[in-house]
């Protein structure tokens, strides 16, 4: 067991973890931040994506001890303190970019990482960037549309509601 100090959503959190404790487990079980989801065990689905020192990582494929001394951002830290959704979250709601909501935290975190790297990605770039985020509900149509919209691009021409 070892102690970790991780700045989570801007607040330093201290915990005692096993070597095998995954970052996703520390967030969910240790800190009660259950917005980060676990949907697979082969590092493919992306429901667990968080940012470590600003970079998107799969928190189910990183040990909590590896995040010691680092800064982690999760879905819970994305909205403003008063609960106002950020631009990406709002675009997902505006464009119906989610249905069951299970993949959504990872999608939002991946979208945030993408827009940081590339503020106005094209459709193909968005689809490629989401390679590691599976969604079973939306068929991705409205997710891609939401990310285009969140980046300030016109989505009026994209078919359907």
């Amino acid at each position: 067991m070892s102690e970790v100090r991780i700045v989570v959503n801007g607040v330093e959190r201290v915990g005692v973890v096993e070597g095998r404790t995954l970052l996703s487990g520390f967030l969910r079980d240790g800190l009660g931040l259950t917005g980060t989801h676990v949907g697979c065990d082969t590092s493919q689905c992306g429901a667990c994506v968080v940012h470590v020192d600003g970079q998107a990582v799969k928190s189910c494929t990183m040990f909590a001890v590896e995040a010691d001394g680092r800064s982690v951002d999760t879905i819970e830290g994305q909205a403003a303190p008063d609960g106002t959704l950020n631009a990406i979250q709002q675009a997902f709601q505006d464009h119906h970019g989610l249905q069951c909501g299970f993949c959504t935290p990872g999608m939002v975190m991946s979208a945030a990482a993408l827009l940081k790297e590339n503020p106005t990605p094209g459709e193909a770039e968005i689809r490629e960037y989401l390679e590691g985020n599976l969604c079973r509900c939306t068929g991705y149509h409205n997710i891609v549309k939401a990310i285009l919209a969140a980046s300030g691009q016109d989505v009026a021409a994209i078919a359907a509601e």
């Binding site: 917005g35 676990v38 879905i75 994305q78 909205a79 709601q93 989610l98 939002v108």
Partner: peptide, 23 residues
């Protein structure tokens, strides 16, 4: 009409309540 989905706010902010969130 197509009002925005009210359930989205909790799903988008990580405050949904899925079964695995219950301990």
């Amino acid at each position: 009409a197509s009002p925005k989905r009210r359930e989205d706010v909790r799903f988008l902010s990580g405050t949904g309540n899925y079964t695995d969130d219950i301990n």
